[in-house]
Design a protein around this nucleic acid. Structure first.
Lengths: 152, 152
DNA sequence: TTATAGATGATACACTGTCTCATTATGATC
DNA sequence: GATCATAATGAGACAGTGTATCATCTATAA
């Protein structure tokens, strides 16, 4: 069961209103980065988009990809998922069920599980600090079933 | 209220048994990295330890620091905390109150807030998957007060 | 003593993300 | 359409992080 709480044009509107309220324009480069991000499945990294957008007829530079990703992030179109490695990981919000990740510290595989709104406990605390929450992620770490079996 | 669920020699034993079961020796370099990691407060990055250990009379190289940190990680003496930037962050397990982080996507500063056991909702789900939970972290991202004020 | 295996440091390296700057595009106003 | 101000872009330089290599050193066992 996939919840279509968002649709693409809704996401696009988010971007547009973010751009407008910051005096920015919906340029061709931004549009392409938006399309690439929305068109992705699962996670992607900035560098993956860079490579992807270098292949296209209408090429987009690294600088633009990084800049646009930051905007998409602030606009709430994508969110950052924090894994323990050196890349920034993103995933888009559209058509995704909110979910979290549990990662195995041995094989680095991860499993996803649905969001159950556990974050509500913390929201008042952060808001009191003046922190504007754009999103959150639960990150469990441990040993996955395969690695446990392998050991015993 | 600080929970002393661990003590230093216990952590040291963890390291020793890890080394032994992997045919490694408790060398002077490893011992120094261990001391530095355990002696730290809050988070630290690999590079911070590198700088710290370069100042000491008994100098330790970058390569050794990175190697040893990986071992401490697998031994369970330190854990990785996932921020969205390009550094690996660590913190040691000994003598720490469980807490979480909210990070600003503009200035990368973060605030900490105490753990409120929100994870209990998810534990049954993960256990059913055969995942052995070693720990978890909540990671909020957004805009901090300073950066919000700066904009308006 | 010798042999073996691990430990180390120096260094080269690849990669990620940031920054600058000169150039180009955009769009509003006249 | 011409002009002007402002934003957008790409190229490339750059700094920082983490990895890999390799020759040398150390420790331990035989």
């Amino acid at each position: 069961m996939i919840r279509h709480s968002h649709n693409i044009s809704e996401e696009h509107s988010k971007l547009e209103s973010y751009l407008q309220s910051n005096g920015l324009k919906l340029s061709f480069g931004r549009e392409l980065v938006f399309q690439a991000a929305i068109g992705s499945h699962g996670h992607f990294t900035a560098e993956e988009l860079v490579k992807l957008l270098k292949k296209q007829p209408q090429r987009v530079s690294r600088a633009t990809v990084y800049r646009s990703l930051k905007e998409l992030l602030e606009a709430g179109v994508i969110r950052e998922t924090a894994f323990g490695d050196k890349h920034h990981h993103f995933e888009h919000v559209y058509d995704e069920d909110p979910h979290h990740h549990a990662q195995c510290i041995r094989c680095h595989s991860f499993i996803e599980f649905p969001d159950l709104k556990e974050d509500t406990v913390y929201r008042p605390i952060l808001e009191k600090e003046g922190f504007k929450i754009l999103g959150h992620e639960m990150h469990f770490y441990g040993i996955c079933r395969k690695c446990r079996d392998r050991n015993s």
